[in-house]
Amino acid sequence: MILRAISFNKEIYNAPLKKQEGKAEMNIELYIPPSDIPQNISSGYIKDKDILFITFDYSMQEKPKKLFEKNNISFFIGASSSKPLRIEICNLSKQAINRVRLTHIIKHDLSNLIGSEIEELTNLRKRTNLEYADEVLKENAEELALSFS
């Protein structure tokens, strides 16, 4: 298994939230808190188990909680903040998935699953963390899929 660190655009996290979620009467800019900004994102493929995993490393550790397990994709988030911690995509060889298809899975299938979870969330921090995760995954799907061989 080779762990592959990806070079993602950290500036995404330094920009204010797109939608102005704050109180209408307050002149306000909201940002993701520093403890929810990943320091590293890496991916790897475990041949024996036929699992591709994507991990997000942070300076502050948090207990993981499973957000969903659908279509061979498991998504683990921080129990309190909902920051993405680990994504596992199983049965890649079994289903004869190639790298192009895997990129599509990360870009679209995973994004749809995250999107449906976001809809149910009311907590701003949790929602924002998942929205940013979706954006980062979409932007770096090709690079993340490179770990699969």
């Binding site: 307050m26 993701i32 808190p33 520093p34």
Partner: peptide
């Protein structure tokens, strides 16, 4: 209190 509630980083100027 607002920062605590949102759980985010908040900038309020002027």
């Amino acid at each position: 209190g607002y920062i605590w509630h949102t759980g985010l980083s908040v900038h309020i100027p002027n």
